[in-house]
Simulated assay, not measured.
Amino acid sequence: MKDEYDLSKMKSHKNPYASKLKKSVTMRLSEDVIDYFKEMAEEKGIPYQSLINLYLRDCVAQHREVDISWQSKS
């Protein structure tokens, strides 16, 4: 094994599986939700879409369920 390798002449190849790793979707989100994730993403130094994906992935891993109970008006 060499101590150093010259990678400058190496050709790059696109990952053939990259398109299968994530699926592009269109979602309508409230501005305050987007702002919240953008601010948090800026603090963490990652794109906000990646942060949203990480959050949703955590919800899946933890089997979290949404409580959609509407408050009744008295």
Rank of each mutant, 00 (worst) to 15 (best):
N53S: 15
I52T: 03
C59P: 01
D32T: 09
L7W: 11
Y55D: 02
Y5P: 04
R64Y: 06
K23D: 12
K20E: 09
S72A: 11
N53P: 07
L54R: 14
Y36N: 07
S12C: 13
Y48Q: 02
D6P: 08
S74N: 06
A61R: 11
S24H: 07
S8N: 14
V25D: 05
P16K: 06
Y17Q: 06
P47R: 04
S69P: 05
K2A: 15
K2Y: 10
C59G: 06
E4H: 15
P47Y: 03
K14M: 10
I34W: 01
I46Y: 03
E4Y: 15
K38W: 04
Q71F: 15
Y36G: 02
D6E: 12
M1T: 12
P16F: 07
S50G: 10
A61T: 13
L21E: 13
M1Y: 10
M1C: 11
A41G: 00
V33K: 11
K23Q: 15
Y48T: 02
Y36P: 01
K44P: 02
D6W: 03
K38F: 00
P47F: 03
K11A: 14
L51C: 06
K73V: 04
A41W: 00
K23L: 04
S8T: 15
A41S: 02
D6Q: 07
K2S: 12
N53F: 05
E31F: 01
Q49Y: 00
T26I: 06
R64I: 04
A18Y: 05
L21A: 10
I46K: 01
I52N: 04
E65S: 06
I52M: 14
A61S: 14
Q49K: 09
N53H: 12
S30K: 12
K73I: 03
F37W: 00
S74M: 03
W70G: 05
D35V: 04
E31D: 06
K9T: 10
K23H: 11
Y17I: 09
K14H: 09
S72G: 03
C59K: 00
K73P: 03
V60N: 03
D3R: 14
K9C: 05
A18P: 01
I46S: 03
N53M: 12
E39V: 05
K20F: 02
A18R: 13
